[in-house]
Deep mutational scan, measured.
Amino acid sequence: IRLYEREDYRGQMIEFTEDCSCLQDRFRFNEIHSLNVLEGSWVLYELSNYRGRQYLLMPGDYRRYQDWGATNARVGSLRRV
Results as ranks from 00 to 15, higher is better:
20 C>V: 06
32 I>A: 05
70 A>K: 14
20 C>N: 12
24 Q>D: 07
5 E>Y: 15
41 S>L: 02
52 G>S: 01
48 S>N: 10
69 G>E: 15
33 H>G: 13
59 P>F: 02
27 F>A: 06
63 R>A: 11
34 S>K: 00
46 E>C: 03
38 L>M: 08
8 D>N: 02
38 L>S: 06
76 G>K: 05
64 R>G: 09
42 W>I: 08
66 Q>W: 10
64 R>P: 01
76 G>A: 10
3 L>P: 00
44 L>V: 11
57 L>E: 00
25 D>L: 12
9 Y>N: 15
6 R>D: 03
77 S>E: 00
41 S>I: 03
63 R>C: 14
81 V>L: 13
7 E>Y: 01
56 L>C: 12
21 S>L: 07
69 G>V: 14
43 V>Q: 15
68 W>C: 11
27 F>N: 05
14 I>N: 12
69 G>K: 15
19 D>H: 08
47 L>H: 06
41 S>W: 03
36 N>D: 07
68 W>M: 15
23 L>C: 08
8 D>P: 11
32 I>K: 02
76 G>F: 01
18 E>A: 09
75 V>F: 07
44 L>I: 12
41 S>A: 02
75 V>A: 09
64 R>M: 05
44 L>D: 00
35 L>Y: 02
58 M>L: 10
14 I>Y: 08
7 E>I: 05
3 L>G: 04
7 E>V: 07
37 V>I: 13
16 F>P: 14
52 G>D: 01
40 G>L: 04
5 E>R: 11
71 T>I: 12
70 A>D: 15
13 M>D: 11
21 S>R: 08
81 V>A: 05
55 Y>L: 14
40 G>K: 03
27 F>W: 05
22 C>M: 13
9 Y>L: 07
70 A>Y: 08
37 V>D: 15
66 Q>T: 06
67 D>S: 09
37 V>K: 01
44 L>Q: 01
44 L>N: 00
65 Y>G: 15
49 N>L: 12
61 D>F: 05
33 H>A: 11
75 V>R: 00
10 R>A: 05
62 Y>N: 04
9 Y>V: 01
79 R>C: 02
41 S>T: 05
71 T>V: 05
63 R>L: 13
50 Y>R: 03
28 R>I: 11
15 E>L: 08
57 L>P: 11
58 M>H: 10
25 D>T: 03
47 L>Q: 13
20 C>L: 09
50 Y>K: 02
31 E>M: 11
17 T>H: 02
3 L>M: 04
40 G>H: 14
59 P>S: 09
63 R>M: 14
6 R>E: 08
51 R>Q: 04
65 Y>A: 05
78 L>H: 01
72 N>P: 11
59 P>A: 13
67 D>F: 06
31 E>I: 15
41 S>Q: 11
64 R>A: 08
22 C>I: 04
21 S>G: 07
40 G>Y: 05
74 R>T: 11
20 C>M: 07
4 Y>C: 15
75 V>I: 03
33 H>F: 08
51 R>P: 00
13 M>N: 07
63 R>V: 08
28 R>M: 13
63 R>K: 12
18 E>G: 05
17 T>V: 10
65 Y>T: 06
25 D>P: 13
62 Y>K: 14
44 L>H: 01
19 D>F: 10
